[in-house]
Design a binder for these strands. Structure first.
Length: 871
RNA sequence: GCGGGGAUGGCAGAGCGGUCAAAUGCGAUAGGUUCAGGGCCUAUUUCCUUAGUGGAUACGCAGGUUCGAAUCCUGCUCCCCGCACCA
């Protein structure tokens, strides 16, 4: 038995020496990319292996199809874990990171992944992150990067602020048990909202993206169209956003967010104490509880003027209004909004019905749907939709409102009070203020002499870093000590792969444009609202800088499933169900593991790891090996040829559509029909098809049958439709059935060794049936009538054959397919099969035609199933 | 509450209007093998019936469309997963 691991090492070395997977800009391109990993100290896990194998199979497949394939890998190497590890070990995160990277590369090579390693990018290297800084400066220039004080999410464990996208249900994205606090801080933001509209509208055009991701993004960006209505409070105009302009006459109070920065402007001296007590309570409420919190509020003392009626409306402060959506204030229409309804009930605020439904207005809850307006001055009688239009346009005329679109998407907070990230290229000068670092001074390099001793940002501990001269006045200045969110690094890395060593520019637009957009981007669905929004945002920005001629980063996005442990749970150390890639590979070999990972289910489904399943994959490879160890080229039988070409025909689209599981099954199926004699060319076809899945093993076989390396760079086989013979398959089925029948009968007769077998072939009814069908088809175009005719009476019991014909008929009504076999052909086929039967049952076999005189004997004989007489 | 995805044989998982009692793998059972209760090979693995063809049920539940449904439609139940007071 061959040593699969030795084979793997052998070919990995050869590939590397030959630089077999180097990408070059010529011909038809194909860009396959898997989301690059964060190099963690614990190394690659099986989930990574799955993710990368999925991409690798596709990359290899496309390469064999003659595409220039770009299949690079890199490392998202900035991030908190390395920094924390460094703090614990009183060391530098760079050390941990680079060790981890070395380890990752070795593991990836061990998986036989066909990367062009020369293009590798590592985001913690200054020659990479200088371009993060460059982009930042460009954004600053265009007004898309800015600093502002805002309530921000603070994770006490990460010791830094987080972006909105990194807060999941009130918790930190990395610390599911850690409450995020809201703090008021001055931070850097990237103006993702400048592209909100395009990010939202563009989702529709992402045809190759999974519906799920698109929906998640739609929800995240959440565009809503409405009207911004101006209310006057204390003599000053305040815009309020609503989607229900039609309920304007039902407004009985306004609610301002209790967290609103300008809340104090509404608070009258008389209400001061009450409001303060209330806000204090709000600030001590946990984010988590906020979701289930009862709607509460307090009167601010101020009143607003209704823009149309001039009525006085009380302004409340409430805990259920978001400070950072719209203007942080809502108009409350208790009759038509459930939240307002509850609030009004609680505080005894009047409820005024202005929209009438078909039936009666329910008293216990608000009627929040569209209906017909009542009590709304001249708008009464209009439908909600009409009223929205009319009221908005009337408000516009009076300059008391305008159409408005609001997004849930917020600007991206990128400041991090951490060390291990891209320094923000900003200098604060006492005289000149905030000054961007000039492009020529990039990169702003992370210092080495830092100390993690304090809780403040470690960057501030490096004097060499902190103290600098102002680029404008040359006076004393200090650097920004915040670094950028790591998601910045991964927002454009796919472009850098196309020109990774460029020292003068972020990339050559020529090269980036050749490879991009990514043709197949593979990664987990958890990135839907983080990375995948950011990368789209960056793409649009770089496009607007004139660097990219396209709008979206990837044509097709593929989300692989989650790899589950043998117990059906997600792999985790705490459950002890983690399968370590090295162990599995050591035990079964890489190719087996790769093959198994894609055999279980379609790659977008969750995969259940099963030791027995892996053994099954190994068994298959061993059988293949066994076959080829005895293989000598010969002439392929028509039968095998037919099956092989069909396999080529079917495997190809299976891989193309990433149904790897089905492709593997088809490979197993053809292999099962292999005969000792087989031409070299046909043997090659099989090895070629096997190679994306089991690349090392395939190379070995390829060499074994006398070919020069590599299969990996040979051409994908093409099928010859002319060689696919359906009749041969039917014949196989007939033979199979006959064999089984003989076995059954011998069993029933309790005969161990028959001295002879006589097979009597009956007249074929099908022959006549088809003639009839043809005649019927010719004489009528009414399919139903034809069917009725066919399905009636005697023919009904031959349903299977009827359906076969009908399905063929439906595909092309002008043609009735030829019937399987005529009686004559069947006889001939049986003659051919005779030797095999004789061999198998160890007796002479007679084949007879059921003539009239033998009718009696043939009474059990059916088409394709001769009557069997045992002697 | 809003939205997305599911429910198939002992298990995993294909199939997504006719060629389906339903690929393939795993497991189980039987038989074979110069055969160790291992490996390999072969057969069986819904029920009934049987000198083979056949029949009855069956693809979450209940209906419907169709000559024909695991596949399409409607309603229901259950499971998973996102977002969640966005005005």
């Amino acid at each position: 038995m061959a040593d699969f691991n030795a084979i793997a090492r052998k070919w990995q070395k050869k590939w590397e020496e030959a630089k077999a997977f180097r990408a070059s800009e010529k011909g038809r391109k194909f860009y396959v990319l898997e989301m690059f990993p964060y190099p963690s100290a614990s190394g690659l896990h099986m989930g990574h292996a799955l993710n990368y194998t999925i991409g690798d199979i596709f990359a290899r497949f496309k390469r064999m199809q003659g595409y220039s394939v770009l299949h690079p890998m890199g490392f998202d190497s900035f991030g908190l874990p390395a920094e924390n590890a460094a703090i614990a070990a009183k060391s530098h995160p760079k050390k941990f990171t680079e060790e981890a990277i070395t380890n990752y590369i070795a593991q990836m090579k061990g998986l036989g992944l066909s990367y062009d390693w020369e293009r590798r990018v590592e985001t913690h290297k200054p020659d990479y992150y200088r371009w993060d800084q460059w982009i930042f400066l460009k954004m600053l220039e265009k007004g898309l990067a800015y600093k502002k004080e805002a309530p921000v999410n603070w994770c006490p464990k990460c010791n830094t602020v987080l972006a909105n996208e990194q807060v999941h249900a009130g918790k930190c994205w990395r610390h599911e048990d850690t409450e995020v606090h809201v703090r008021q801080l001055e931070q850097w933001f990237l103006k993702t909202t400048a592209y909100a509209d395009e990010l939202y509208e563009g989702i529709e055009k992402l045809e190759g993206w999974p519906e799920l991701i698109k929906t998640l993004q739609r929800n995240w960006i959440n565009r809503s169209e409405g009207t911004e209505i101006t209310f006057t409070i204390n003599g000053r105009p305040w815009p309020i956003f609503t989607t229900r302009t039609d309920t304007l006459f039902g407004v009985t109070f306004l609610v301002v967010s209790a967290r609103h920065p300008r809340l104090q402007e509404f608070v009258t001296p008389g209400q001061k104490a009450a409001v303060e007590a209330f806000t204090k309570k709000i600030h001590t409420t946990k984010q988590e509880d906020l979701e289930t919190l009862e709607k509460e509020g307090v009167f601010t003392g101020s009143t607003a003027l209704h823009p149309l009626t001039g009525e006085k409306i009380p302004v409340w402060a409430g805990n259920f209004v978001l400070a950072d959506y719209g203007s942080g204030m809502v108009m409350a229409v208790p009759a038509h909004d459930q939240r307002d309804f509850v609030f009004a009930k609680k505080y005894g605020i009047p409820i005024k019905v202005v929209v009438q439904p078909q039936g009666k207005v329910p008293a216990i809850r608000a009627f929040a749907e569209d209906g017909t307006l009542v009590d709304s001055s001249s708008y009464s009688g209009m439908t909600s939709a009409e009223a929205r239009e009319q009221i908005t346009s009337d408000l516009e005329k009076e300059k008391k409102g305008k159409k408005s679109v609001q997004y849930r998407l917020k600007d991206w907070l990128i400041s991090r009070q951490r060390f291990w990230g891209t320094p923000i290229p900003i200098i604060y000068c006492q005289k000149c203020g905030t000054v961007p670092v000039p492009e020529k001074d990039l990169p702003v390099v992370l210092p080495e002499d830092i100390s993690f001793s304090d809780v403040t940002n470690p960057l501030a501990s490096s004097k060499k870093f902190l103290e600098t001269a102002c680029p404008r006045c040359k006076g004393k200045a200090r650097r920004e000590t915040d670094t950028m969110d790591t998601f910045v690094n991964s927002s454009w890395y796919q472009l850098r792969y196309t020109d990774p060593k460029n020292k003068r520019a972020i990339f050559d637009p020529q090269k980036a444009g050749f490879w991009n957009p990514i043709d197949l981007y593979i990664g987990g669905k958890e990135h839907a609202c983080m990375h995948l929004i950011y990368i789209r945002f960056y793409t649009k920005f770089l496009r607007d800088l004139g660097l990219l001629p396209f709008d979206e980063p990837a044509v097709k996005l593929f989300n692989q499933g989650i790899l589950l442990g043998p117990d059906g749970n997600k792999m985790s150390k705490s459950l002890g169900n983690v399968i370590v890639p090295e162990h599995a590979i050591g035990k079964y070999g890489v190719d087996t593991v790769r093959l198994f990972l894609v055999s279980v289910a379609a790659p977008d489904k969750d995969i259940l790891w099963s030791e027995q399943g892996v053994e099954g994959s190994l068994r298959f490879l061993k059988k293949v090996e066994e076959f080829f160890s005895k293989y000598a080229p010969g002439k392929t039988s028509k039968r095998l040829e037919s099956k092989l070409h069909r396999a080529i025909r079917d495997v190809t689209p299976d891989i193309e559509s990433m149904k790897y599981n089905n492709a593997v099954i088809k490979l197993r199926e053809v292999f099962d029909t292999f005969e000792e004699k087989m031409s070299k060319h046909d043997a090659e076809a099989f090895i070629l098809m096997l190679s994306p899945f089991a690349p090392h093993f395939a190379e070995e076989l390829w060499e074994h049958i006398g070919n020069k390396p590599f299969v990996s760079s040979s051409s994908w086989p093409k099928h010859d439709a002319g060689k696919i013979d359906e009749k041969l398959d039917i014949l196989d089925a007939l033979n199979q059935r006959l064999r089984k029948d003989i076995i059954d009968i011998l069993g029933l007769l309790k005969v161990q060794k028959p001295s002879g077998l006589t097979l009597i072939v009956a007249e074929r009814w099908r022959y006549d049936f088809v003639k009839m069908f043809r005649a019927a088809a010719a004489e009528t175009r009414n399919f139903k009538a034809l069917l009725g005719k066919l399905l009636s009476g005697d023919l009904k019991k031959h349903g299977q054959d009827v359906t076969k014909l009908i399905s063929a008929f439906l595909k092309d009504p002008t043609k009735v397919p030829p019937v399987d076999f005529t009686q004559q052909e069947e006889l001939e086929a049986l003659e051919g099969f005779k030797a095999e039967i004789e061999q198998e049952f160890g007796c002479a076999v007679n084949i007879e035609l059921a003539e009239a005189s033998k009718e009696q004997k043939a009474k059990n004989a059916l088409p394709g199933k001769p009557a069997i007489i045992v002697s």
